[in-house]
């Protein structure tokens, strides 16, 4: 088996002011190669002005079987959303 070919996740910023968005992944043996490969794969049609690559193995994710405990407790905190509060129309936009 050959080794050394790593997977990198690619994030692109399309325009100044926009957030970086995950575009997909790319292969590359080193950092520079990963950047160049990402540029050639994901921005051939002028899709980007900034590009990040990060080795996929460095990404930390929530374990699948903990997802319930991780995210569900946020579901019932409705007081965190503006629509929870009743404000009279007459006071204007708030």
């Amino acid at each position: 088996m050959e080794s050394g070919d790593k997977v990198w996740e690619v994030f692109i910023q399309k325009k100044a002011g926009l957030p970086f968005k995950h575009a997909g992944s790319v292969h590359g043996y080193d950092k520079k190669m990963a950047l160049q490969n990402a540029r050639d794969l994901y921005t051939r049609r002028g899709e980007g002005r900034e590009l990040w690559v990060v080795e996929a193995s460095n990404i930390v994710a929530v374990p699948l079987d903990e997802a319930d405990a991780f995210f569900d407790p946020a579901d019932d905190k409705i007081y965190r959303h503006p629509t929870f509060y009743n404000i009279p129309d007459s006071v204007g936009h708030m």
């Binding site: 050959e2 080794s3 050394g4 070919d5 043996y29 080193d30 950092k31 190669m33």
Partner: peptide, 16 residues
């Protein structure tokens, strides 16, 4: 082209 990929892997090991 196996030798090219091996070179890239060896170079990455040395430099990164």
């Amino acid at each position: 082209n196996k030798w090219v990929r091996e070179a890239a892997a060896a170079y990455a090991l040395k430099t990164e």
